[in-house]
């Protein structure tokens, strides 16, 4: 989240993609860093990650891509 705040401050739209376990942590950190809106724009993919198969990982990406593009653009 630190990095993203820095990129946003440089005027670069950024999106954090994280596992669903990170919803609360992302919110807390974004608030502490002074950009609560950034957490609202984060994209969360279903846990778990580390033991997911390659195919499962690609599925997670396919499910997330719309939300990622939406988070980086004005009209989605």
């Amino acid at each position: 989240m630190h990095d993203l705040v820095d990129y946003e401050a440089r005027g670069i739209p950024s999106v954090l993609v994280a596992s669903s376990e990170f919803v609360h942590a992302a919110q807390t950190q974004a608030e502490a860093l002074g950009m609560p809106d950034l957490a609202a724009g984060s994209v969360f993919v279903p846990h778990p990650i580390q033991d997911a198969t390659d195919e499962e990982m690609r599925m997670k990406a396919q499910d997330a891509i719309d939300a990622i593009v939406e988070a980086l653009t004005a009209n989605g």
């Binding site: 670069i12 993609v17 994280a18």
Partner: peptide, 24 residues
């Protein structure tokens, strides 16, 4: 750790948008 300064600068110079993944 947060990204080192040179990575941040590279992003700043080259990118118009950033996706950071995958936090777990």
């Amino acid at each position: 750790k947060p990204a080192p300064g040179d990575l941040r600068d590279e992003v700043g110079e080259r990118c118009q948008a950033v996706i950071q993944a995958l936090a777990d």
